[in-house]
Amino acid sequence: MSTVTNTIFSPELAARFDHLVTIYPVKRSALVPMLLYAQDEIGYVSDAAVSEIAVRIGINDLEVRNVLSYYSMLRTKPAGKYNVQVCTNISCMLRGGYGILDHCKKTLGIGHKETTADGTFSLEEVECIGACCWAPAMQVNYDFHDGLTPEKVDVVLQQYRDGQGKDVK
């Protein structure tokens, strides 16, 4: 049972949140992870999620928004089911990162921070994701794909389309 009645989250996540606020020396330490996990479940951080998390932590909504808007992985609008994040930072750029981004734009038919009509994919150009030595690289949701070529991107995207892609959460 969640400590919050009428939780908007799944019972599992609510239980996880109940636990999360107890493990730190101060409750508020759970804030950033909670926002991220809430987003993983809902697809974005909704106003309702903001309010419930504020209650769980014991701070006001504004404080949650202050924090939420700081972190670039957190979003307040839905993205596609699979969020394709292409790194174009220096190491990737040197090995064709922009080509990969262009390729994604073309094959998915969407631009930066846009979502395909069917809601399957969204695309984002991101900063360095820590895969520099295996560049160019991208993440689909939390899964890494490196040593990319346009052909490899097609294979990866097809896997997701087919529901075969790894969805790390």
Binding site: N60, L62, E63, R65, N66, S69, Y70
Partner: peptide, 9 residues
């Protein structure tokens, strides 16, 4: 009162 915050970065 805490009616004002800093958002984005």
């Amino acid at each position: 009162v805490f009616a004002l915050g800093i958002q984005n970065r």
